[in-house]
Simulated scan of single mutants.
Amino acid sequence: MPSKRLTRTGLAAVAAAVVVNGVPAHAELASGVQSDAAAAKTQSAQAQPVEAHGITAEELEAAGSALMEPPPGGWPVPSRRSYYLTGSCQASASVIAAGAAAWQGLTQGGGTPVECRNSYITDCGGGGRIVGCNWGRGQRIALFLGGVRDQRLLAAHEFGHDWYGHSSYRCAGWGSASEVMAPSLCGGKLGKTPLIPID
Protein backbone atom coordinates (compact mmCIF):
# COMPACT_ATOMS: atom_id res chain seq x y z
CA MET A 1 0.00 0.00 0.00
CA PRO A 2 2.77 2.55 0.60
CA SER A 3 3.61 2.39 -3.10
CA LYS A 4 0.03 3.41 -4.01
CA ARG A 5 0.26 6.32 -1.60
CA LEU A 6 3.53 7.43 -3.20
CA THR A 7 2.04 7.03 -6.66
CA ARG A 8 -0.97 9.17 -5.78
CA THR A 9 1.29 11.78 -4.20
CA GLY A 10 3.52 11.74 -7.27
CA LEU A 11 0.53 12.17 -9.57
CA ALA A 12 -0.72 15.08 -7.47
CA ALA A 13 2.68 16.74 -7.77
CA VAL A 14 2.69 16.25 -11.54
CA ALA A 15 -0.85 17.66 -11.78
CA ALA A 16 0.20 20.69 -9.74
CA ALA A 17 3.23 21.22 -11.96
CA VAL A 18 1.13 20.99 -15.13
CA VAL A 19 -1.10 23.92 -14.13
CA VAL A 20 0.66 27.18 -13.33
CA ASN A 21 -1.48 30.19 -12.38
CA GLY A 22 -4.56 28.37 -13.71
CA VAL A 23 -3.06 27.80 -17.17
CA PRO A 24 -2.00 24.31 -18.31
CA ALA A 25 1.77 24.31 -18.73
CA HIS A 26 1.55 22.70 -22.16
CA ALA A 27 -0.63 25.57 -23.43
CA GLU A 28 1.86 28.13 -22.12
CA LEU A 29 4.75 26.29 -23.77
CA ALA A 30 2.91 25.87 -27.08
CA SER A 31 2.06 29.57 -27.23
CA GLY A 32 5.70 30.55 -26.60
CA VAL A 33 7.29 28.28 -29.24
CA GLN A 34 8.93 30.00 -32.20
CA SER A 35 11.61 28.98 -34.65
CA ASP A 36 15.05 30.43 -33.93
CA ALA A 37 14.81 32.49 -37.12
CA ALA A 38 11.38 33.88 -36.18
CA ALA A 39 12.53 34.61 -32.63
CA ALA A 40 15.67 36.39 -33.89
CA LYS A 41 13.57 38.43 -36.34
CA THR A 42 11.08 39.36 -33.61
CA GLN A 43 13.83 40.28 -31.18
CA SER A 44 15.66 42.36 -33.79
CA ALA A 45 12.43 44.24 -34.49
CA GLN A 46 11.94 44.82 -30.76
CA ALA A 47 15.50 46.03 -30.19
CA GLN A 48 15.56 49.70 -29.32
CA PRO A 49 18.60 51.78 -28.50
CA VAL A 50 18.61 52.90 -24.87
CA GLU A 51 20.93 54.99 -22.75
CA ALA A 52 20.51 52.94 -19.56
CA HIS A 53 18.34 49.93 -19.07
CA GLY A 54 17.58 48.97 -15.45
CA ILE A 55 15.57 46.14 -13.91
CA THR A 56 13.72 46.37 -10.62
CA ALA A 57 13.19 43.60 -8.12
CA GLU A 58 9.42 43.62 -8.72
CA GLU A 59 9.88 42.86 -12.41
CA LEU A 60 12.51 40.14 -12.39
CA GLU A 61 11.46 37.27 -10.10
CA ALA A 62 10.01 34.44 -12.23
CA ALA A 63 8.10 31.62 -10.56
CA GLY A 64 9.43 28.28 -11.69
CA SER A 65 12.12 29.74 -13.94
CA ALA A 66 14.63 27.13 -12.80
CA LEU A 67 12.52 24.39 -14.44
CA MET A 68 13.90 25.25 -17.88
CA GLU A 69 17.32 26.00 -19.28
CA PRO A 70 18.63 27.72 -22.40
CA PRO A 71 19.58 25.39 -25.25
CA PRO A 72 23.09 23.91 -25.19
CA GLY A 73 25.42 26.61 -26.47
CA GLY A 74 22.83 29.35 -25.85
CA TRP A 75 20.39 31.22 -28.09
CA PRO A 76 21.73 32.81 -31.30
CA VAL A 77 22.62 36.51 -31.22
CA PRO A 78 23.38 39.01 -34.00
CA SER A 79 27.00 39.60 -32.91
CA ARG A 80 29.64 38.20 -30.58
CA ARG A 81 30.28 40.07 -27.32
CA SER A 82 32.46 39.65 -24.25
CA TYR A 83 32.38 40.74 -20.62
CA TYR A 84 34.62 40.81 -17.58
CA LEU A 85 33.81 40.76 -13.88
CA THR A 86 34.94 43.52 -11.57
CA GLY A 87 36.22 42.57 -8.11
CA SER A 88 32.75 42.98 -6.61
CA CYS A 89 31.45 39.99 -8.65
CA GLN A 90 34.22 37.44 -8.06
CA ALA A 91 32.18 35.52 -5.45
CA SER A 92 29.30 35.21 -7.93
CA ALA A 93 31.37 34.36 -11.01
CA SER A 94 29.78 30.93 -11.62
CA VAL A 95 26.21 32.25 -11.38
CA ILE A 96 26.97 35.12 -13.77
CA ALA A 97 28.75 32.78 -16.20
CA ALA A 98 25.68 30.50 -16.17
CA GLY A 99 23.51 33.50 -17.11
CA ALA A 100 25.94 34.53 -19.84
CA ALA A 101 25.80 30.99 -21.26
CA ALA A 102 22.21 31.70 -22.34
CA TRP A 103 23.64 33.63 -25.34
CA GLN A 104 25.84 32.17 -28.10
CA GLY A 105 29.14 33.92 -28.56
CA LEU A 106 29.08 35.75 -25.21
CA THR A 107 32.45 35.08 -23.65
CA GLN A 108 34.31 36.19 -20.57
CA GLY A 109 37.50 38.20 -20.97
CA GLY A 110 37.33 41.88 -21.92
CA GLY A 111 34.43 43.93 -23.24
CA THR A 112 31.60 44.92 -20.89
CA PRO A 113 32.49 45.46 -17.21
CA VAL A 114 30.04 43.73 -14.85
CA GLU A 115 29.78 44.97 -11.28
CA CYS A 116 27.79 43.52 -8.38
CA ARG A 117 25.95 45.69 -5.89
CA ASN A 118 24.84 45.00 -2.32
CA SER A 119 21.59 46.96 -2.64
CA TYR A 120 19.11 48.18 -5.22
CA ILE A 121 20.58 50.11 -8.14
CA THR A 122 19.78 53.81 -7.86
CA ASP A 123 21.79 55.25 -10.75
CA CYS A 124 20.01 53.48 -13.62
CA GLY A 125 17.24 55.98 -14.24
CA GLY A 126 13.57 55.41 -13.56
CA GLY A 127 12.23 54.41 -10.19
CA GLY A 128 11.48 51.28 -8.25
CA ARG A 129 13.65 48.60 -6.75
CA ILE A 130 16.05 48.04 -9.64
CA VAL A 131 18.10 44.83 -9.44
CA GLY A 132 19.88 44.99 -12.80
CA CYS A 133 20.97 47.62 -15.28
CA ASN A 134 22.68 47.57 -18.68
CA TRP A 135 23.90 51.00 -19.80
CA GLY A 136 24.27 51.72 -23.51
CA ARG A 137 23.72 48.14 -24.73
CA GLY A 138 26.81 46.70 -23.13
CA GLN A 139 28.89 49.68 -22.00
CA ARG A 140 28.44 48.62 -18.37
CA ILE A 141 26.24 46.19 -16.40
CA ALA A 142 25.33 46.26 -12.69
CA LEU A 143 23.57 43.41 -10.84
CA PHE A 144 21.99 43.20 -7.39
CA LEU A 145 21.93 39.40 -7.18
CA GLY A 146 20.63 39.47 -3.60
CA GLY A 147 17.35 40.96 -4.80
CA VAL A 148 16.16 37.92 -6.77
CA ARG A 149 15.76 34.18 -6.42
CA ASP A 150 16.98 33.22 -9.92
CA GLN A 151 20.29 35.04 -10.15
CA ARG A 152 21.18 33.30 -13.44
CA LEU A 153 18.03 34.68 -15.04
CA LEU A 154 18.84 38.21 -13.87
CA ALA A 155 22.34 37.93 -15.40
CA ALA A 156 20.96 36.41 -18.63
CA HIS A 157 18.36 39.18 -18.90
CA GLU A 158 20.89 41.98 -18.47
CA PHE A 159 23.36 40.40 -20.90
CA GLY A 160 20.46 40.03 -23.35
CA HIS A 161 20.08 43.83 -23.37
CA ASP A 162 23.39 43.96 -25.27
CA TRP A 163 21.22 43.07 -28.30
CA TYR A 164 17.52 43.12 -27.38
CA GLY A 165 14.85 45.22 -25.69
CA HIS A 166 12.02 43.82 -23.62
CA SER A 167 9.73 41.23 -25.18
CA SER A 168 5.95 41.01 -24.97
CA TYR A 169 6.02 38.16 -22.41
CA ARG A 170 4.64 39.19 -19.03
CA CYS A 171 7.03 37.16 -16.87
CA ALA A 172 10.65 36.22 -17.47
CA GLY A 173 11.62 32.56 -17.61
CA TRP A 174 13.85 30.10 -19.43
CA GLY A 175 11.37 28.96 -22.12
CA SER A 176 12.88 31.02 -24.95
CA ALA A 177 15.15 33.99 -25.61
CA SER A 178 12.04 36.18 -25.80
CA GLU A 179 10.86 34.90 -22.42
CA VAL A 180 14.24 35.74 -20.84
CA MET A 181 13.73 39.31 -22.08
CA ALA A 182 10.29 39.76 -20.46
CA PRO A 183 9.91 42.99 -18.45
CA SER A 184 9.00 41.22 -15.17
CA LEU A 185 9.76 38.26 -12.95
CA CYS A 186 6.62 36.99 -11.28
CA GLY A 187 6.32 35.71 -7.73
CA GLY A 188 9.19 34.36 -5.70
CA LYS A 189 11.73 35.59 -3.21
CA LEU A 190 10.36 38.94 -2.22
CA GLY A 191 7.07 37.53 -0.92
CA LYS A 192 4.89 40.64 -0.76
CA THR A 193 6.13 41.82 -4.15
CA PRO A 194 4.78 39.45 -6.80
CA LEU A 195 6.20 41.42 -9.76
CA ILE A 196 9.82 42.50 -10.02
CA PRO A 197 10.34 45.04 -12.84
CA ILE A 198 13.31 44.37 -15.08
CA ASP A 199 14.98 47.23 -16.81
Rank of each mutant, 00 (worst) to 15 (best):
W103P: 05
S92G: 05
P2T: 08
I196M: 09
A27I: 14
L106T: 03
L60K: 07
A52K: 15
M1L: 08
L190D: 10
H157Y: 10
I121A: 01
H53M: 10
G147Q: 08
K192L: 03
E51P: 00
Y120C: 03
G64R: 10
Q48V: 14
A25D: 12
A47S: 15
G54C: 14
S176R: 02
Q90P: 00
A98R: 15
H161N: 02
A13E: 09
K189D: 04
G111V: 09
G110R: 06
G136K: 11
H26I: 15
Y169F: 15
E115H: 08
I141F: 12
G54K: 12
R81H: 13
G175H: 02
P71E: 09
F159E: 00
S92M: 07
I141D: 09
A47P: 04
H53R: 13
C171L: 04
A155Q: 03
A172N: 10
V20M: 04
W75E: 08
A97V: 01
G188S: 11
M1R: 10
C124S: 15
Q151G: 09
L143I: 10
Y164I: 07
T122I: 04
N134Q: 05
Y84E: 08
G126W: 01
A100D: 07
A27T: 13
Y120A: 12
S35F: 01
T107N: 09
H166D: 14
G187I: 04
Q43V: 00
W163C: 06
T193G: 04
S88W: 05
S31V: 07
H161C: 05
L190V: 05
Q34G: 01
E158G: 06
V114I: 09
G188R: 05
T56E: 12
G138N: 01
L185N: 09
L154H: 07
S44F: 03
H26M: 08
D199C: 13
A172C: 07
G22P: 13
H166W: 03
G74Y: 00
W163R: 00
A40R: 02
P72G: 08
T122H: 04
A101I: 00
I141L: 06
S44A: 15
M1F: 01
S79V: 13
G127E: 14
T107M: 07
L154I: 01
F159V: 09
V95C: 04
S94V: 04
G110A: 10
H166F: 03
A177L: 02
D36C: 01
G111C: 10
A177F: 03
T42R: 15
S79A: 15
I121K: 09
F159Q: 02
L67Y: 02
A12C: 08
G138K: 06
G110I: 02
P113E: 12
V18D: 09
A156T: 03
G191E: 12
A39K: 03
S176A: 14
I141S: 02
Y120L: 12
T193F: 00
G127Q: 12
T122N: 10
P70W: 10
L154T: 05
L60Q: 06
S79D: 13
A101T: 05
G87N: 13
L190I: 00
G138R: 07
V19M: 01
D36Q: 13
A15V: 07
H157D: 01
Q108D: 02
N21R: 13
A57D: 04
A38D: 15
P113G: 14
L11R: 11
A15Y: 06
S82I: 04
T56I: 04
G147N: 03
R8F: 04
P24E: 11
W163N: 03
P194A: 09
G132W: 02
G125P: 03
L195W: 14
